[in-house]
Design a protein around this nucleic acid. Structure first.
Lengths: 228, 228
DNA sequence: TTGTCAACTGTCAGTGACTGACATTAGCCT
DNA sequence: AGGCTAATGTCAGTCACTGACAGTTGACAA
């Protein structure tokens, strides 16, 4: 078989998404997440063993730990995806956009993409039930808080970068991100408290809350004055 | 056995500091904390096993878990004591005192009492080294954040109580406590970053920081107006 | 003093999270 | 076809943590 590929930028003429191996891995991972959330939300997080999750997907416990560093990680897999989506969206915002505008446009875009990206493996309704489990499990609350702080730090760094500021000497990126995150957290909790789990509802809610915040922070940061 | 206790308000007429049993328990507990912190700060938290701690005090592992629900708890034992001290001090502040004043006087008093109460079993220098370990151990960071949130909630509840407010409808207690806690956290981190671990240094630092905050919140809450 | 009771502790066995080592399987590529 | 290697399974072992049971020891009354 002397097959010549000449001008072929994608060596394996595989379907849109990688080879069989890749697809299998993605399927296993998705199945693990799905089964885990299903079990967590029905029996509780502590009452669910890793063995149960692995058995449900018919893989060994060892394989589970090759996909997730620990039991907590699978619980936050969806959140992780959402945040990554958001962070990517933020990074793609045009440089001219004021920081706050970039942040709120990024969340809006993220919520859109999420419905399709996540919705396939984990129905939104399950995601929301999992949110409740996290909020009512001390071990997961702790992890959730740590993750939030870590995300805020990354956001502050990104904002500082795009504005050409020094994070150590200029407090404004952190302050902005803290305020922004506070609003996001509040609207997230409200979303969890309500029954409505459509991505449209959460987006509308978030925007409404951010509208209260924006006026107070609308000044353009690139006016030269470093401090009021 | 028909035992009648007549008028005896304190069934066991124990000496000022409890019986021998009590003292023994306190000694064991103090020894466990001391050894644990010593090991955590020299080898790291994850690298230290509960068996090591128990062996160092010459008790069984099972006994360790009768004193502390888990490995984390012994790591936060000192913080726990400090917070309890602070909380007690707050509760004893006169009712007429404005909330913010009560909070800052309570911290001041707490820092005083701490030096003697804690200093006996755990030298301040060890306490500070442990603070660093907490700040650099992901598992402990998570727990620390959860504990902070829990403390804030209790503080907000206490403030709402003493002002006769409803925590669910009036946001001011939470806002005040959030601001106060933020300042405490910042000054705490600075204290950790510096070398100086005297209780006087941290108290001065805290007060200086709180001075920036107070002016903006000095209004008396009992003027009748619920919202600005 | 002595005996009883209850608290404290130790021992043991077991579960569950997690890891390293090694053998086996199964896509991938020539 | 056959070799390479990533993915998986198996096994043994560590560590945090728990329930059950037995032994020890302060506390307290007779």
């Amino acid at each position: 078989m002397t097959r010549q590929r000449l001008a072929d930028p994608t060596p394996p003429p595989a379907p849109p998404e990688g080879g069989l191996r890749e697809r299998k891995k993605r399927r296993t991972r998705a199945a693990l997440i799905h089964s885990a959330l299903e079990l967590f939300t029905t029996q509780g997080y502590e009452q669910t063993t890793v063995d149960e999750i692995a058995d449900a997907v018919e893989v060994s416990q060892r394989t589970f730990f090759r996909y997730f560093a620990n039991k907590e990680e699978v619980a936050f897999a969806v959140q992780e995806a959402v945040e990554a989506q958001f962070f990517d969206a933020l990074r793609e915002r045009p440089a001219g956009e004021p920081p706050m505008t970039a942040l709120r446009r990024a969340v809006s875009l993220a919520w859109d993409t999420i419905e399709q990206a996540i919705g396939e493996t984990v129905p939104p309704e399950l995601h929301m039930r999992m949110y409740h489990v996290i909020e009512s499990t001390p071990a997961l609350i702790a992890v959730h808080l740590r993750r939030s702080v870590e995300l805020e730090e990354r956001l502050a760094r990104e904002i500082a970068d795009r504005e050409g500021l020094d994070l150590d000497s200029d407090p404004r990126p952190r302050v902005l991100v803290a305020a922004f995150s506070g609003v996001i957290r509040v609207s997230g909790r409200l979303w969890g408290a309500r029954g409505d789990c459509s991505s449209d509802a959460i987006r509308k809610l978030t925007e409404a809350y951010l509208d209260h915040l924006t006026p107070a922070l609308a000044e353009d940061w690139n006016t030269g004055s470093t401090h009021a």
